[in-house]
Structure formats: C-alpha cells, structure tokens
Amino acid sequence: MEPLTVTRGKGPIVLAMPHSGMWVPPVIWARLNERGRRLADTDWHLDRLYEGLVPDATIIRANFHRYVIDTNRDPSGKSLYPGQNTTGLCPITDFDGRAIYQEGMEPDASEIEGRRRAYHGSYHAAVADELERVRKEHSIAVLYDCHSIRSHIPFLFDGTLPDFNVGTNGGVTCDVLFERAVTSVCAAADGYTSVLNGRFKGGWTTRHYGRPEQGIHAVQMELAQSTHLEAESPPFAYSRTKADRLRPYLASVLETLAAQARTLAKEA
C-alpha cells in the first residue's frame, strides 16, 4: 500500500485529507486491541463527500490510518491544545480516552520516530511540494484541510459540536478575506450550525503551512459527522441523503475560496 495518493490539479485549491485513510500495517494491526481495530476515529468517507466539488483541485490523501501516526500533530509531539484532552502523534488511546493497544504493545520512542520518518514525513513532503507548485503557478495557494469527527465526544469537548467548525488559528493562517468567505457560506447554510476557531482552531497542518504573507493561505474544516453519516457509530455508513444536502454548501465554500484566490492573484 502506498502511504499517500496525490492527484494534481491546475487550480489554486489544495485539498488535504490526513485522516480518511484506513490502512494499518500488519505489524501494527496485530498489536491493536479489539477497540483499536474498530478504527472508530476515522474521518469517514471524506474522499467521497468532497469528490468533484471543485474543478482542478489538487488532492493529497493519506492512505494510512491516524492510529499509525497522526499527520495533523506536531512531529515533535508537542500538544496543539495545551490543557485539553487530545490524542498524541502516535495515539495510544481513542477519542474516548480508551486504550487502543493490547497491554504492553504500545509503540516506544524508537518506533514512533520510525513512523514519523516513514509516514508523517512523506505526507508533509507531498503537501509542501504541491503547495509550492501551486503557488508558483498562481502566485497564491489555498490549503483546505478536510476533517470530520463525531459530534458528541465528552472526552474532547462538552455538548454537541457545531456542524461546520472553521479553523484559522485565530485568523493568522489566511487572509481575512478567505476566513470571511468560508464563514459567510457556513453561516448562511440553512439548517446547519457553524463556529469560527471554536474547539478546533486548526491543527498542525493549518498552523504550519498558513503563511499568508508568503502567498499560502490555510483553512481547516472540521465537519460534524452527523452531517453526512447515517449514524456516528459502526458501521459509520455514508448517508447519501445527508451528503447530497451538504455537498452544495461545501462546493460553495470551495468555489468561493477559488474565486477569492484568483482575485488576489490578479491584484498581486
């Protein structure tokens, strides 16, 4: 299994999908416990949800599961949300705080470093290369980091998560025009809730690459999985009815970002 799939487009939008892959190397799979093998923390069906929504987008998809290594975490292991419950670079618990490895089978520091080089490093090398390619072609690149999560996880946050969770790390990872473009579409989406820089302010990817002064703008979109799954429990089935209602709003977000990128590129 190739660790990632890159589909090159000609437009200014780069879609990153770090958590939709489900492949776990056999040597790791054998050490997961029953709970870990559920892979419950997958960003379910995002490739299908976003398919064809914006023409000429570049798509970078990690094929390995986040339990192998989380490519949206700081490679140093530093927490992105100090003082809050979260999962680590190579998670040993799931989003409910429960162990995912058989007792004594967790990865040690040496193994984590090996995974970092093999998976985290290769994924981010591709992201960096594609962003630079797009920026050179258009004088601007917009990284849209695609995520989803269960809407109710007491270990991670109180209450029910809004449907659209937009993260720009407090407005520093993109020009304010991009932030407004996304939030305006989400706020106007009939029957959906949204928040800007709430519980999810943007992970390592958004924070690392978002350099608007250098022509690279980054936005994270964390969708509540209730927006496109039949149920937020096994088998985590895709709901075509829900997705068909959601997809036009996601398309509008991406089309608005692309249009804004073209406008700024002309002004540069």
Score class of each variant (00 low, 15 high):
Val6Ala: 01
Arg8Tyr: 06
Leu15Gln: 05
Pro18Ser: 06
Ser20Gly: 13
Gly21Ser: 07
Gly21Tyr: 03
Asp41Thr: 00
Asp47Ile: 10
Thr58Ile: 05
Arg61Thr: 13
Ala62Asn: 13
Arg66Thr: 11
Val68Tyr: 04
Arg73Met: 02
Gly77Ile: 06
Ser79Asn: 06
Ser79Gln: 09
Pro82Cys: 09
Gly83Tyr: 04
Asn85His: 15
Gly88Met: 05
Thr93Phe: 02
Asp96Gly: 14
Ala99His: 09
Glu103Ile: 09
Glu106Trp: 00
Ala109Lys: 14
Glu111Ile: 13
Ile112Met: 13
Arg116Trp: 08
His120Lys: 00
Tyr123Trp: 03
Leu131Asn: 04
Glu132Phe: 00
Lys136Ser: 10
Glu137Leu: 12
Leu143Tyr: 03
Ser148Gln: 03
Ser148Trp: 05
His152Trp: 11
Ile153Leu: 15
Phe155Arg: 11
Gly159Met: 07
Thr160Ala: 15
Leu161Phe: 00
Leu161Lys: 03
Asn165Pro: 08
Asn169Asp: 15
Gly170Pro: 07
Asp175Tyr: 04
Val176Trp: 09
Leu177Trp: 09
Glu179Asp: 06
Arg180Gly: 07
Cys186Arg: 10
Val195Phe: 02
Arg199Val: 15
Trp204Asp: 06
Thr206Pro: 01
Arg207Lys: 12
Ile216Pro: 06
Ser226His: 13
Thr227Leu: 14
Ala231Cys: 06
Arg240Tyr: 09
Thr241Asn: 09
Lys242Glu: 03
Lys242Asn: 05
Ala243Ile: 02
Pro248Ala: 00
Pro248Tyr: 00
Leu254Val: 01
Gln260Tyr: 07
Leu264Ile: 09
Ala265Ser: 15
Ala265Lys: 09
